[in-house]
Design a protein around this nucleic acid. Sequence first.
DNA 1: TTAATATATGAACAGATATTCATATAAGGA
DNA 2: TCCTTATATGAATATCTGTTCATATATTAA
Lengths: 118, 118
Amino acid sequence: MDAICKCKNIDKKELERTIEQQPDADTIERMSNFFSVFGDGTRLKILYYLSCQELCVADLASLVKMGQSAVSHQLRNLRLNRLVKVRKEGTTSYYSLDDEHVQSIFEVALEHINEVKR
Amino acid sequence: MDAICKCKNIDKKELERTIEQQPDADTIERMSNFFSVFGDGTRLKILYYLSCQELCVADLASLVKMGQSAVSHQLRNLRLNRLVKVRKEGTTSYYSLDDEHVQSIFEVALEHINEVKR
DNA sequence: TTAATATATGAACAGATATTCATATAAGGA
DNA sequence: TCCTTATATGAATATCTGTTCATATATTAA
């Protein structure tokens, strides 16, 4: 503990609790991975559009003004992270949200950026 | 609109509303930027430790098991994004959280990754 | 079967990002 | 003043990530 805390003014009892209760490496990795998914404009737009209604790849591509391939890659990312799901009908794939947390995540982020508006 | 929606089964009235109400480019950029900050394990750990108590750079470095420089760079990032603030005392800098959303953000993320546990 | 359409995916490339290293700044003590 | 300590920061580097391009797969129509 001495090796860890060289500063005065630090509550060492509190620090012990902090270390005991710290999230394990796996949790940290899952969390950072989860947030990284939201850390890209294209994916945010896709999630926004899908929060309104189910849409096919071609429509999403024209909505986000990006190539079909790029959108398809991003949808794969979102699918692997369990944020969207697919429904196939003939050759077209209809995507929709697969997580009810997306809305609340968006709300907290909007609160933050609105407070920080410079 | 025809150029946008080539698929059947799409509610075009809803699509119009979706486009009208879509967040502007600036908002999208701020949001993705905000989430990117949380998309890194080192920063997540720092935020966790600071959610327990104010800490100096050296202590944070030994807690996250990383060099002083790396931590300092990340603290700068967090500071620029208004997530932490500094208090100087002599040569040491004490960092603490500067945003009450951090807790709620963490909670939503934990809910998600706990549901997705594979 | 052949052609057309919708989507998926591997490879390549460009741009972004985290860490390290070296060094600068700045305060306090000897 | 000189030395030590705590932190900050610019540059370099290695890694990661998003997009594009080319192509594969699969379904439907002719």
